[in-house]
Design a protein around this nucleic acid. Structure first.
Lengths: 362, 362
DNA sequence: CTGAAAGCGCTTACAG
DNA sequence: CTGAAAGCGCTTACAG
């Protein structure tokens, strides 16, 4: 009863790890392939004794399931797409690191998509084929969607989660901080130090890749000013790219306008760092001449003595990954959390370092 | 001649994008599925007219190939695993960004693996199943392998490439800088400024995740000292973790030993930044009291005025990705480049900023 | 240049 | 708790 030799066409005689198939395990364990499949995936409908035999056989043969076959037959990919604007920026690096750990620990692969500020990459990603049947779920980090992109995503009909996103996706949970409050706290800190001419530098919301945090942070800034009886001055509010260079350019522009501010609230730490550079170049001392505060608590903010509003980046990643996977694993999300639940807001915290100081009396 | 209704078990009546299969396209175009497959993949054995019809049909039906089915039948995954020690560190973020762009542009997916300094992650990754039949190729960034890991990888029998790796993998090309030369240049810069007590702070080579760059950079440092007639002083050579905190701790240790150096060569910019922090805390001015230089040209080195040896991170990523994919695409690698070719060495460049200055006369 | 058919290696109703 | 068999949706020799 020797089965006829299988017709092996693609793999021409290469012997080694990976040639073991589920049939080999089934034969050795003396069960059907169906049972091997069930035992290996830990399904409950397998007797303890059988499971033991199957595991031993699989171990002995060094069997590893073929992902493609499993995906095709089972309909699950075991992968998650993670979309970030720029992996090189502090926040996204930290988020991705936390997410990667969580996903792999849960047995999922992470497909990384970095938009890199390029329209081309956006197009590529949201062309149906890039995500279609490749992943079980999607995580969108700080990536607002245009209408067309939103419907392309909706057509995929996949679960997902957003982090600090500009666009809430219907049916997807969201993890973020309260950007308005963070900006308010930062601005209030400067006000309490006696500053009145407080500038704001932020990312450009016209930038297609901008996320609404820009707008929220501006709102918090303006609210704090108004609460202190001050009127936001457009001359003190400059937009640029949401990174170090953008901070430098925005600050240069600010100084070019004459009558410089005594304090700058930067929309993120990287912009604040650019501001530090521009101020130094201009011969202004921080904090003696100008105070500077950002948002993030970037790994280098301590080195630079930068005051900031710390936000929990890794925690946001971890929590979002958990909220994404729990339903996939059949675990129901937290009780009372419907699919239309409000965003989960994580706390921020003022960190005062050397870059902010009392305004000098004139 | 209506075909009998297909038995649809898994997809229960969901209508939308993605239900189109290759048979649908074949029917609409009036050809076989084999021809659709060939036409869509751009194989040359399809007439122009047929190809046109197939493409039109696929377009009309919004057809996207099922990756799992294609992988199972074709044996190729269209994915590449990229392994980095820590995505949050500057060098790896920049490398991954460049690689991601190149891979996606070539139609490959990127599976990210971040070791994160955890032994657990290493185990997980090199357990057969994590990579087995999941990717067509592997990129190892600054990830030296132990013997067991090396043979596990070899058993996978996949093409790969290493970047600045500690371990050369037989048959895999390698892209890197000349670490010895970079360190020599940095040290010589300090020597030329008149420094004689030059310390070195570096990553810990006993750390399992260390890469041999540590050793090479130390060698360059020592070579430069000897060439200047100086004897390397173990008291001036401190190992710590290869990041900001490590730089801080190593520098604190250095200062604790008494008779502090007049200059510090840090094995990477992040350690140099940690050194800046520790020096400031200790009340020492940079560069008046102590000069500091690193290696990398980190995005924030300019902000900090840190002198450094710039290395082309994105370029290393791009080139490695190209060297990995060209053979997969059937393109032969550069003429004369055998699989045992020597590493491709990319150039580095001394960047003098404000953190290095002439040693004061005593 | 094109098609019929086998095969890729699993998972899942279905039946027992 | 377990097995026989269909099916997942493609690609690839093979034959023409």
């Amino acid at each position: 009863m020797v089965p006829p030799p299988t017709r092996r066409r693609h793999h021409t005689g290469v012997i080694g790890v990976g040639v073991t198939k589920i049939d080999d395990v089934a034969r050795l364990a003396g069960v059907s392939t169906a049972t091997v499949s069930r035992a290996l995936r830990g399904l409950p409908t397998v007797s303890a004794a059988t499971r033991r035999r199957v595991l031993a056989a699989a171990e002995q043969l060094q069997y590893a399931v073929s992902p493609s076959a499993s995906r095709l037959a089972g309909g699950r990919t075991g992968s998650v797409a993670v979309v970030v604007p720029r992996i090189t920026r502090w926040f996204f690096g930290v988020v991705v690191e936390a997410v990667e750990d969580f996903l792999h620990e849960a047995g999922y692969d992470l497909l990384l998509h970095n938009l890199g500020g390029r329209e081309r990459n956006r197009q590529r990603l949201l062309r149906t084929a890039a995500l279609h049947k490749r992943v079980d779920a999607i995580m969108l980090v700080a990536t607002p969607l245009r209408a067309a992109e939103m419907s392309a995503l909706a057509a995929l009909d996949l679960p997902g989660v957003t982090i600090s996103s500009g666009t809430e996706v219907p049916g997807w949970p969201c993890v973020r901080i309260d950007d308005v409050a963070a900006a308010r706290t930062a601005t209030r800190h400067l006000l309490e130090l006696g500053h009145r001419r407080i500038a704001h530098i932020s990312g450009d919301p016209d930038d297609e890749l901008a996320f609404s945090a820009h707008l929220d942070r501006r709102r918090g800034y303006q609210e704090a000013l108004r609460a202190a009886g001050l009127r936001p001055d457009p001359a003190l509010d400059v937009e640029s790219s949401f990174d170090i260079d953008g901070g430098t350019r925005a600050t240069e522009e600010l100084l070019r306008r004459g009558d410089p501010p005594t304090a700058i609230f930067a929309s993120c730490d990287e912009m604040a760092m650019g501001a530090l550079t521009a101020l130094r170049e201009a011969g202004l001392r921080v904090p003696q001449d100008v105070s500077v505060i950002g948002i993030d608590d970037h790994a280098l903010s301590g080195v630079l003595g930068l005051s900031t509003i710390a936000q929990p980046a890794a925690e946001q990643g971890r929590l979002a990954a958990k909220m994404l996977l729990d339903p996939l694993a059949g675990r129901s999300p937290e009780a009372g959390m419907s699919t239309t639940a409000a965003p989960v807001i994580l706390p921020t915290r003022l960190v005062v370092r050397e870059s902010t100081a009392p305004a000098r009396a004139h």
